[in-house]
Amino acid sequence: MDSQAYASATDTLPAEHGHPPFLRHHFESVSQQREAANFGMWVFLLTEVMFFGGMFCAYLIFRNWYHPAFVAGSNTLDITLGTTNTAVLIASSFTMAMSVYAAEIRRRGMLMFFLACTIVLGFVFLGIKGVEYHQKFVDHHVPGPSFSIEEFVHPSNPKALALTPDMAEKTQLYFSLYFLMTGMHALHMIIGISLLFFLLWRAYKGAYTEGHVMPIENFGLYWHFVDIIWIFLFPLLYLISRYR
């Protein structure tokens, strides 16, 4: 239907016209509005793909150049915490998917429950990440003046190759990229959790269980996207360079 024609047709209707209050006049139907919003969200996510893509690209290039340093750096990460965090984030994606379902079947209590679960799992992820960051500070593996190459020149792990001081300095590049990528990912999580508190409050007011699923669905797309970034960060940072 011609949108122009529709707009002029609705102008003639009285104030109490026959559509849900959340349906904007320039859309023909709720599902059209929902799909347009989804489309916009996906276009935003594509810019995010390029944003993280640049960092992934830098990581791949420098890993090629300074492979021994990247292997040594990667092996200082705690694989158990990394795997646990992956499971936590996947669980939070699941509870977010269930939130969308709850909004679709218009169950307010269920929606609030799953949004709250997603918030809790988001905090668990950030907490575990905090423990990992703390360990890096303790080990002097944070790039900067306090960085120590000791562990890489005289490794305590018998499986590790001792690096020359030159190459050992390059582990700073690994940790810079580690903190940049996981830090940007964590920032996205923090923004996501803030938005979740807002959505939870609006859900409590009953905003999303009267057919207006779109904000929950679009936030879900964002949250799943953040999950996907971690799905790639996890093998690249933790797994592919293990000593065997």
Binding site: S29, T83, E104
Partner: peptide
């Protein structure tokens, strides 16, 4: 366009969740 969007049911979400955990 008449407003009939596909609703994905929980059993599928649970199956995907378990597959993702297994793959991890």
């Amino acid at each position: 366009h008449a407003g009939e969007m596909h609703i994905v049911r929980p059993p599928l979400y649970i199956a995907i969740f378990l597959s993702l955990l297994a793959l991890t």
